[in-house]
């Protein structure tokens, strides 16, 4: 499938189909990781990250894909992998070109989100569901209250706030331990 068609799938909200198409590029990315001392599961993780980063950028109104999907995913994957290996030398970072800088920024940003995700996953099941429904599925408190059998919308809203705060607490302690 051509890049244009894949792009159209993203625009029409058919993200899953688009991802499925992009998975055809996976074998080549896997080769890259395998030839850089990674395992197959590393390659899998790296490609997932690359897809997430691509998707985030596509959702930004000011982002424009200047190269093919393959080139983009390849360079993102390369950065993700080098980042996890912490193999960037100062010289390398210094010599980055502007496009590479933006990719590198995106990779670093995503690292933050990844730890936020980790924090989120430490919440109780009910909290996770509540937050997902509100923030991702954009459900109203009214519906959530009904579905999760809260006494009222207000209780649901209150509960959501508590859950969010908890996630933030976990996230903060995580980042502190990483930093220290």
């Amino acid at each position: 499938m051509s890049d244009d068609k894949i792009m159209a799938l993203f625009k029409n909200g058919k993200r899953e189909k688009a991802f499925k198409e992009l998975y055809k590029l996976y074998p080549r990315i896997e080769k890259l990781i395998l030839s850089n001392n990674g395992t197959k599961s590393d390659a899998n993780d790296v490609f997932q990250e690359a897809l997430i980063i691509l998707n985030r950028n596509l959702e930004k109104s000011d982002f424009k894909l200047t190269s093919s999907f393959y080139t983009y995913l390849y360079s993102v994957s390369r950065f993700v992998w080098k980042d996890t290996q912490r193999k960037f030398t100062k010289q390398e970072l210094h010599n980055l070109q502007s496009e590479e800088v933006s990719i590198f920024d995106a990779v670093l940003e995503e690292q933050k989100y990844k730890s936020a995700e980790k924090a989120f996953r430490e919440l109780g099941e009910r909290c996770q569901q509540l937050l997902q429904w509100f923030y991702v599925k954009k459900m109203t408190f009214k519906v959530i209250a009904e579905q999760m059998r809260f006494k009222s919308e207000k209780v649901a809203k209150n509960q959501k706030y508590k859950c969010l705060q908890k996630a933030k607490d976990i996230y903060r302690t995580q980042t502190k331990t990483v930093q220290s």
């Binding site: 997430i52 730890s115 995700e117 924090a119 989120f120 996953r121 996770q128 923030y135 991702v136 996630a167």
Partner: peptide, 8 residues
Amino acid sequence: IIKGIERV
């Protein structure tokens, strides 16, 4: 945090 949740 929200982006983290989105990742899931």
